[in-house]
Amino acid sequence: MLQRETSLGARLWAILVWGLVGFFILNLLGMIASVVVNSVGTRWFTTWLPAGWTVRWYVLAWNEFGLPDILLTTVQVVGAVVLLSGLLGVPAAYAMARRDFPGKRLILLLFLLPLLVPPITYGIPLATVLYQAHLAGTIWGVILANLVPSLPFVVLIMIPFVEQIDPRVEAAARVFGAGTGRLFVQVLVPLLMPGILAAMLLVLVRTVAMFELTFLTSGPTSQTLVVALYYAVFAAGVRPGQSIDAMAVVYMVTTLVWLLIALRFVNPTQIVTRAKR
């Protein structure tokens, strides 16, 4: 174990660094708390806290923003993206982990690029193509666009999980006559379950929060929660700010619940360092 330095300079430096972290977290929590407090307050002008408490902004947001429809769309989009990215991504990850074939590095680059290029950069050409195909504006356009970063994400997360499985298990299944389909259903999927669960949850969280691609490809009937929130903030002044914050709280709860569940299976750093190979 490394010796801690005890000189005055070292202590001051440590205090400074921890002070910085504390200040950052304080502001972060303050930002979140002010949204929550504003969404349940009545009038809030020049005081620390609102004058009274109410839930009527939630009722207003529920009716005015059409939250039931938006939540339904969000569930449909996220569900389809999670399912499809798993169905396409897990087999691809299996092939990438188990076989060395010519052009494998190229395929790996192909899966890395959508994660490295920011969505707004490739989203505009993608939306153009989807509009030409008359898919943009529909829920399918949104699902297809959201699959672009999700599918490679599943592949890159699943490769190490597949590599952990002893190939002798698969060899044994093959010896007993299992084809590739049966091998997947009866051997690989059960063994890969922790990895699949982690990947699916992370895709879920990312898709709920994916603004740019959904924004560029959605129409009035295919908005997800985050896009509806953007339009509400964009048109601030039309509706009371508290009801926008109520919607923001609904969005936060939707995202954070899944994040908490996901964090039971993955390390927080994995959410960021997906591209490290």
């Binding site: 972060l28 949204v35 969280v205 929060a209 994916m210 603004f211 985050v226 929130l229 953007y230 903030v233 923001a248 969005y251 936060m252 995202t255 954070l256 994040l259 959410i271 960021v272």
Partner: peptide
């Protein structure tokens, strides 16, 4: 904050 995204 990464999970919540830039809009929030």
């Amino acid at each position: 904050p990464i999970t919540l995204g830039t809009v929030l």
